[in-house]
């Protein structure tokens, strides 16, 4: 006794699946309206724009192999359904040289083309690669903490939590490390992500080609406050950027051992603003001035010095700060 699915079920099966796929395609425009500044689907810089282009290019080329399957499955299943006795039945036909050539060589060709693009584009968009520009890059050093980002501008001896401002049309050269656990830094509207890890320095190069505010996140899970480890990346005109630097220098507090120890606790930008912030600083943001040179390097070298770091002195650890000061 065989299954009784028959033609009626077969039709509803195909209808349903085709409808589902059609719905997905129809929904694509809605995806693009993601909300300003959160996604590379609305790129705000050259890197993100290239990444969006790659996404579309790869998808279209791959469809050469994917679309035939999506068409052939319902077509063949319908035509060769058991009740359709007019279709030829060849139970022992199991090989065709021509078909073998097509089956193997078409995917090989598609992958070969994609591979060439992949090789070239991966080299073009290496995160460590400086963005070609007439202007000198703005150096920003990023320290990932639980659950906030600290941005240090060594040139100006300022730092911020929760906000990274920079001039538009000028490359931003980031050096990243973490002072807690493995994290991943991303401003999707501008470019891709890079991991930041304790004792190590990674690099990322970004650039915005318009003024705006963009959403920055950590994508590597770090605990209870992970979803709050966000910040705003703001690209501005040169004039506005200079004004911003001046404001931070004026309104900032000192970044020293005491204030950094507050940052080292497991807390969100909101909580840090509540502890360290002043009314002159925006919500969820803290400004620091008087940042000593080499602050970033000191954070990195903590882990490569060959000395042990007890849990009481490890930012992000459960026991952090539980020992009396000075220990």
């Amino acid at each position: 006794m065989r299954g009784r699915a028959g033609p009626v079920r077969a039709i509803s099966n195909f209808k349903r699946r085709t409808l589902g796929l059609a719905a997905l395609v129809a929904a694509l425009p809605a995806v693009a309206c993601a909300g300003d500044g959160t996604s590379f689907l609305e790129p705000a810089g050259p890197i993100a724009a290239l990444q969006k282009f790659h996404l579309i290019q790869i998808t279209l080329i791959s469809l050469i192999v994917v679309l035939p399957v999506l068409v052939l499955v319902p077509l063949l299943a319908w035509r060769y359904r058991a009740s359709n006795t007019s279709a030829r039945y060849m139970p022992d036909w199991d090989f065709s040289h021509a078909l073998e050539y097509v089956m193997w060589l078409v995917p090989v060709a598609v992958v070969a083309v994609l591979s060439v693009y992949l090789w070239i584009d991966t080299h073009k968009l290496d995160p460590y690669k400086q963005i070609a520009s007439a202007q000198k890059p703005l150096q920003v050093e990023v320290v990932g903490l639980d659950w906030k980002w600290l941005f240090i501008y060594p040139e100006f001896h300022i730092a911020t939590v929760g906000q990274m401002a920079f001039p538009k049309d000028r490359p931003v050269a980031l050096k990243l490390t973490s002072d807690t656990v493995m994290q991943s830094f991303m401003v999707s509207a501008l470019g891709g992500q890079i991991y930041d890890m304790p004792g190590m320095v990674t690099k990322l190069n970004l650039q915005a080609d318009r003024v705006g505010s963009f959403h920055g996140v950590n994508t590597q899970f770090t605990g209870d406050g992970f979803q709050d480890q966000t910040f705003t990346a703001m690209s501005m005109t040169n004039k506005d950027f200079d004004a911003w630097v001046a404001k931070v220098q004026k309104d900032g507090i000192a970044l020293n051992e005491a204030s950094y120890r507050v940052l080292g606790h497991r807390s969100t930008p909101d909580q840090v603003h509540a502890t360290l912030g002043t009314p002159q600083m925006p919500q969820q943001v803290v400004y620091f001035n008087d940042v000593p040179s080499g602050f970033f390097n000191k954070v990195v070298m903590k882990y490569t010095s060959g000395k042990a770091i007890p849990a009481t002195r490890q930012p992000g650890a459960v026991a952090y700060g539980q020992a009396p000061v000075g220990e």
Partner: peptide, 29 residues
């Protein structure tokens, strides 16, 4: 039949993810 149609879509997104440039955007999302 469901598998054949749905799996190739997964395969398509796999090819997308295989490209480091795009993966830099969608990794961990």
């Amino acid at each position: 039949l469901s598998f054949m149609m749905l799996f190739v879509i997964g395969g398509l997104t796999g090819i997308i993810l295989a490209n480091p440039t795009v993966d830099f955007q969608v990794h961990n999302t």
